[in-house]
């Protein structure tokens, strides 16, 4: 049951659009920086497969310039 956090850098001027797109993805929380072109994305999924699917969905967003993994935690299934 992976929990991961990323820094998501939007394409120029597309911070709001990226935020909107990310908000539509399940298992994905978004925290926007108030004063910089940057978003924090936290994903919380049931399995490694789901985790990979969520990551693929994020990376497919056209407003995303760069997605950088910061931390990853893997908790036991019954958690």
């Amino acid at each position: 049951m992976p929990i991961k956090s990323y820094l998501a850098h939007p394409q120029e001027g597309k911070k709001e659009a990226l935020m909107e797109a990310l908000s539509k993805i399940d298992h994905c929380d978004v925290i926007p920086a108030e004063n910089k072109e940057l978003l924090i994305v936290v994903t919380d999924t049931e399995s490694k497969t789901d985790d990979e699917k969520v990551k693929e969905s994020i990376e497919a967003i056209k407003y995303l310039k760069l997605l950088a993994l910061v931390s990853g935690f893997n908790t036991p299934k019954n958690n």
């Binding site: 929990i3 991961k4 956090s5 990323y6 820094l7 929380d29 925290i31 920086a33 910089k36 940057l38 924090i40 994305v41 936290v42 919380d44 950088a68 910061v70 931390s71 990853g72 935690f73």
Partner: peptide, 12 residues
């Protein structure tokens, strides 16, 4: 989850 978010904030 909060730790993961905090780690990302620190990196940012």
């Amino acid at each position: 989850k909060k730790m993961a978010a905090a780690a990302a904030m620190t990196a940012a």
